[in-house]
């Protein structure tokens, strides 16, 4: 995932859908059938229980992007679609990582301090940390965590909202 998240082929779509059964399956089935690549995906209900919001990062060139958006829009439960640019939106991901901390605990604490990360679990010489941030920041943090020795790592799909101004 590292270093790819900023390529020009990545487009963040925020898709408002009806909160009904199988909506995610319809979206996934469309991507599979038309051979579009999903880079990351995050889904959750909105504050209005009738709707969910899907944030999809698609991995396509500009011209297929128009097709992706139009085909998504044809799905009956899709209410609205908006493309969010990196500059025009606030984008966040969450990272959880278990690292071999050894005798480098203080360096790890410094890293977490710089990025408002937290230790969420520890034991047997290992520490599980969580950090939330913009995708590029997480790329850099992931690289630095690598120097400690990553045992397991999980990142969420990206979520995003448009900037206010």
């Amino acid at each position: 995932m590292t270093s790819e998240s900023m390529t020009s082929r990545h487009h963040t779509l925020t898709v408002l859908v009806e909160n009904k059964p199988a909506v995610l399956a319809r979206v996934a089935s469309l991507f599979s059938r038309r051979a579009y690549n999903i880079f990351s995906l995050a889904v959750a209900p909105t504050d209005d229980p009738r709707f969910s919001r899907i944030t999809i990062v698609v991995d396509v060139d500009e011209s297929p992007l128009e097709q992706v958006i139009k085909q998504l829009d044809k799905l009956i439960p899709v209410v609205s679609i908006r493309e969010l640019s990196a500059e025009g939106s606030c984008q966040r991901e969450l990272l959880l990582a278990t690292v071999e901390v050894g005798d480098a605990r203080s360096e790890l604490d410094t890293l977490l301090g710089e990025h408002k990360g937290a230790v969420v679990d520890e034991g047997q010489g290992r520490v599980t940390v969580s950090v939330a941030g913009a995708p590029d920041d997480l790329d850099r943090i992931e690289a630095r965590l690598g120097s400690f020795g990553i045992v397991e790592l999980q990142r969420t799909g990206r979520i995003a909202l448009p900037r206010l101004a």
Partner: peptide, 11 residues
């Protein structure tokens, strides 16, 4: 059948 026909029905 709704799963099977998802890609071949309008809805």
């Amino acid at each position: 059948i709704t799963g099977i026909t998802m890609g071949i029905t309008k809805h």
